[in-house]
Nucleic acid binder design. Structure first.
Length: 210
DNA sequence: CACCAGGCAAGTA
DNA sequence: TACTTGCATGGT
């Protein structure tokens, strides 16, 4: 399994090169983006974040003080704008209450504990929490998403009903726990998923992993 | 027109 | 526990 997983990575990297995730000017922006991108194309999230920047409100205090109606209007392009407004505020309240809205304070907390705290926040599930940990705070945590499950399942590395934890453990146990590696690997799986491993096309003859 | 996107929570049985 | 549904815009 170790050879298999590192072999996949080498093939993906050779096929697609570095992906440059996560685009964003600051860790805070990455965390906001992690919530906005839930089941939503990144393209649409960029529009929403662009609106926040254009209005100069992409800061914890400003977003917290803003009325829900205005925030919802600004993030509208990201879809689910009403529920994401509430979830964003849930996270912002947590961030302000526990860490004084400081990334440095949040980042100094032990990773597994912080992950548990994030999962208690309404609107933050495993993928969003892990995306924040890896891409905003540079913690060596593997992000599992729908593409990861589909690709690993189709290549016979996990059962089709494997849980999030099961898949995450597979990467943790069989790869060097490296932020750089986890960062690039997840992004490459998404790239492969978009280009070759689509939902409706179970068979792929030109998959770079073959 | 149908389908999907860098998920999550709540409801039902 | 295991399934289903609501949330919503915008690109292909």
């Amino acid at each position: 399994m170790k050879r298999k997983l590192s072999g996949f990575y080498k093939k993906l990297y050779a096929a697609f090169g570095p992906q440059g995730w996560w685009p964003g000017d600051s860790p805070f922006e990455v965390m906001v983006g992690a919530i906005l991108t839930q089941n939503t194309s990144w393209h649409n999230v960029e529009k929403a974040i662009g609106n926040l920047k254009e209005s100069s409100v992409l800061q914890p205090n400003k977003l917290l003080k803003m009325g829900n109606a205005r925030l919802a209007r600004l993030i509208r392009p990201a879809g689910y704008y009403n529920i994401k407004t509430r979830w964003l505020k849930e996270f912002l309240r947590f961030f302000a209450r526990e860490y004084n809205a400081k990334v440095s304070a949040m980042s100094s907390v032990q990773t597994s504990f912080l992950r548990g705290e994030l999962l208690k926040v309404h609107g933050i599930g495993p993928e969003t929490a892990d995306s924040m940990l890896l891409y905003a705070l540079n913690k060596p945590v593997f992000v599992v998403d729908a593409y990861t499950k589909r690709i690993l399942s189709r290549h016979g590395l996990v059962k089709s009903d494997a849980s999030y934890q099961e898949i995450q453990d597979l990467f943790r146990k069989n790869l060097k726990n490296s932020v750089k590696l986890f960062n690039e690997y997840h992004a490459l799986l998404v790239k492969l998923g978009k280009d070759f491993c689509l939902k409706n096309k179970p068979k792929c003859q030109i998959c770079p992993l073959k």
